[in-house]
Design a protein around this nucleic acid. Structure first.
Length: 811
DNA sequence: AATGCGTCTTTTTTT
DNA sequence: AAGACGCATT
């Protein structure tokens, strides 16, 4: 990372100056124009700690950027003294851009990044202090899962019921709590063989990471905290440097991140050799000023350790903290906000907060129920086209879903309907086999200690190096106390056949050649294009590319394209970072998720999960798959607080919409290769009927819409007090909506859906329907559980019925 | 050591 | 339905 080396300490008597930096002219007042009173307070308040409770769409990014700009313009801080933490790299980029617009080039010296990027930056500098080198690798979850898998196997831990996935998630949770294997062992019941085994795995995992000179995602934060605590003089360097720390999305911080912030905002511990004068001394005695922005209603990352208490107990943690509430929404129409408010209201133990808008009611929320997920997708595609014709750009529309797997059906239909789209996140480019292989080659050069990377590529392409040979190398390395990587150089003494010796020698040679390009041994600074060159040497001379080209597997053609793309990425990297090294490149690749790539105005519809959608906004939003077991997700039902988090997720989705919101679902959904009947999500019930217009309601789809007697359809009152099992707070009588969106299809949510099994119908058959009476089948379309009967009823006329669940019988 | 076949498992969300 | 994985065969 090229790090603008700005002074850590203000020279006495001189404030920051922007004269030469090309900052746009403009007074501080200009920064405050157009802010509402609360926003103004949030921008101008000065003190040790500030909590900005920012409802969705309340202009928090504006407040944050203007706050930073005003610190700079008033000469209260140097750019280098500002640390701003965002949740994603994309958000960081956007914030930097917006601050730049306000203050010009002086934005360059600021640290605006995610927790993880900031920690990598610190760790690379300080790694030597505690047993790592600055060439450390960052293991993504796939890498660490591979390692854990090996450990589980070696220790036969699966016999105790410990799966790699479970071990991985438990280790991750513990690290987020700043626990390590030792501290876990102290509290665990060591008589329990499972606990004992887990402790062993945890310990070995950590030892392996250390040996490989690697950190996993969670380590990046936890080890930085450890570093600060173990080496106060190192922490002091950063405490002196950062005088203003701002954290966005504070509701999604976990304990480790909280601890990191706490360490950074502490007063400097050792005040020796400050040497910069009194001003610095006085400043540091107080610790950095902290600003956090958050909204507990948008906390959706508890599953990865986010602790809502960080925000709810902020005032206790940081005495003297000021709290500012932003409740006016500048994004959405009132109808959308009403929908959002009436959903989130059902979460108990939340501070009541009501978003309001002065933009007028706008259009109603539109609902649609499809027969199948494809039917639903077709509705979305058709509607998108219709909006497009009326003037909405594709780029202003987005489709959300709960799980990544839901994107498939949408994609299929979009392709068929020629709707341009892009999928944010999802199966990531950097998770593809060939890309991981290529990166493993680079890592093998950059961090020779990383045995995992080397093992990954040692037989890719096939060189005849199998498990036996790998074991040979490994034991040779152990016997001679050298690394796995170094053992390759002794290919003649590994006790393997001549043919395999040749393979190893060849690989060794290629790695050396790339090393000379990427990290020249004569100490020269590598050329900007070194990463691209090194990568090409590795891919071409290792035979990897040749093997792919020779293959007749059609997938391998796509792999070649992907690798070409990766080379293009390295070129792009060289352009953007002329001084970037292989380490910088690998860092960027490890931390920058695909959802971060910002080809914004690309004129295509964005598809993404609800989680990815956080922080974004669109004119028109399609929230799909609004079904039980999807949102709220089935798995969440068992987790404490799960259903409430799901509701917040739904809330986040709703509040992304500026003008139009669509809620859609399907009556059947294929999953696990089986077609199952889906039920409307309970959250639909929570939206008042008068703001939700159903184009096709669940009742329409199974053809009993409102025709049954009210008595039969009346919802049974729920018993008990307090919250029920779903964490729904019973509404006070006065608050209960007179009618909700679900009254149109009562019974569907709570009652079991009828199942006709494999009832066979053919054109010409006579059937009887509970509501429509007798009729004649005209045609049957669809397959399996999605078969639809087109029926002409004697009295009710033509109807389409889902055979599997319609209340019908064959006559 | 590589290939091929049959049997599982999978779908929660992410830096 | 698709991909991962293990086992057996070549």
């Amino acid at each position: 990372m090229s790090d603008a080396q700005t002074p850590l300490i203000l020279p006495p008597g001189s404030g920051p100056s922007f004269g030469a930096s090309g900052a746009p002219s403009g007074s501080a007042d200009e920064l405050l124009e157009g802010l509402n009173p609360q926003q103004l307070e949030a921008v101008t308040h000065r003190g040790p700690a500030l909590l900005i409770v920012a409802g969705a769409g309340s202009g928090k990014t504006r407040v944050l950027t203007h706050r930073i700009a005003s610190l700079l313009r008033n000469r209260e801080a140097w750019p280098s003294q500002i640390l701003a933490i965002t949740f994603t790299n994309k958000a960081a980029g956007e914030m930097r851009e917006r601050v730049e617009q306000l203050v010009g080039d002086s934005a360059k010296g600021m640290w605006i990044s995610t927790f993880h990027s900031a920690c990598v930056r610190i760790l690379r500098r300080e790694a030597d202090q505690f047993g790592f080198t600055k060439a450390f690798t960052i293991y993504d979850s796939g890498d660490s899962r591979a390692l854990i898998k090996r450990l589980v196997k070696d220790n036969e831990a699966d016999a105790l019921g410990l799966t790699p996935a479970a071990v991985q998630s438990k280790i991750s949770k513990l690290k987020n709590e700043l626990a390590d294997a030792d501290s876990y062992a102290r509290d665990a019941n060591m008589n329990d063989p499972v606990e004992r085994m887990f402790t062993t795995l945890f310990r070995e995992y950590q030892r392996n990471l250390q040996k490989a000179n690697a950190f996993d995602f969670d380590d990046l934060i936890a080890q930085t905290v450890y570093l600060f605590r173990a080496f106060p003089q190192v922490a002091d360097v950063y405490r002196k440097r950062f005088r203003h720390i701002l954290v966005d999305e504070y509701q999604d911080t976990n304990h480790a991140q909280y601890a990191l912030i706490h360490e950074l905002t502490r007063p400097v511990t050792s005040s020796d050799d400050v040497g910069g004068g009194m001003l610095a001394l006085m400043d540091e005695a107080e610790g950095a000023s902290l600003t956090v922005v958050g909204d507990s209603d948008q906390s959706i990352y508890a599953f990865r350790g986010a602790d809502i208490r960080n925000i709810s107990e902020f005032e206790r943690d940081f005495p003297g903290a000021k709290v500012v509430l932003l409740e006016q929404n500048y994004r959405s129409t009132q109808n959308i906000l009403t929908a959002a408010n009436s959903v989130i209201r059902n979460n108990f133990d939340r501070k009541d907060k009501k978003l309001w808008s002065d933009q007028g009611d706008g259009e109603k929320v539109i609902g649609f129920t499809g027969y199948s997920q494809h039917d639903e997708a077709q509705f979305v595609a058709d509607e998108i086209e219709s909006l497009r014709r009326k003037g909405t750009h594709y780029g202003d529309m987005a489709v959300f879903y709960r799980t990544n797997s839901q994107s498939r059906a949408l994609e299929e239909i979009f392709i068929r309907s020629a709707v341009p789209y892009k999928i944010m996140g999802g199966t990531k480019f950097y998770e593809r086999q060939e890309i991981k292989d290529a990166l493993a080659y680079l890592v093998s050069v950059a961090n020779p200690a990383d045995e995992m990377a080397l093992r990954r590529i040692i037989n890719k392409p096939r060189r005849g190096i199998g498990d036996v040979t790998v074991e040979n190398i490994s034991s040779f390395a152990e016997r001679h106390e050298m690394s796995f990587r170094d053992a390759l150089a002794h290919y003649e003494h590994l006790g393997v056949g001549p043919k395999i010796q040749g393979s190893i020698a060849q690989l060794h040679k290629v790695l050396l050649e790339a090393q000379e390009i990427l990290l020249p041994s004569n100490g020269e600074i590598p050329a900007p294009t070194s990463v691209a060159e090194g990568l090409q040497v590795l891919l071409n001379k290792s035979g990897y590319m040749d093997a792919l080209r020779a293959s007749r597997d059609p997938q391998d053609e796509a792999r070649i394209e992907n690798l070409d793309e990766l080379v293009a990425v390295t070129r792009e990297f060289a352009r953007n970072n002329p001084e970037g090294t292989i380490l910088d490149f690998l860092t960027e690749v490890a931390l920058v998720a695909d959802s971060d790539d910002l080809d914004d105005e690309s004129g295509s519809v964005s598809l993404m999960t609800l989680h990815t959608a956080k922080g974004l906004e669109f004119d028109s939003v399609f929230l799909t798959g609004v079904e039980e077991d999807l949102i709220p997700h089935r798995i969440s039902a068992g987790e404490p607080g799960g259903p409430q988090e799901e509701r917040r997720l739904f809330y986040v989705g709703i509040t992304r919409a500026r003008k139009r919101l669509y809620l859609s679902l399907a009556m059947t959904r294929a999953q696990f290769g089986e077609v199952t009947v889906a039920m409307p999500s309970r959250f639909l019930q929570e939206i008042p009927a008068d703001i939700l217009h159903w184009r096709q309601s669940p009742g329409d789809v199974n053809s009993r819409g409102g025709t049954q007697s009210r008595a039969l359809n009346a919802r049974r009152p729920r018993q008990g007090s307090g919250s029920d099992q779903w964490g729904v707070k019973p509404l006070a009588p006065s608050l209960k909506p007179k009618s909700t969106a679900m009254d149109k299809f009562p019974g569907l949510v709570t009652n079991k859906v009828r199942d006709n099994g494999d009832l066979e119908l053919a054109p010409g058959d006579r059937i009887r329907h509970d509501d429509f009476g007798e009729g004649r089948v005209d045609a049957v379309t669809g397959e399996g559980a999605k078969r639809i009967a087109h029926v002409r009823f004697d009295a009710a006329g033509p109807k389409k019925l889902l055979i599997k669940i319609a209340p019908i019988e064959k006559l």
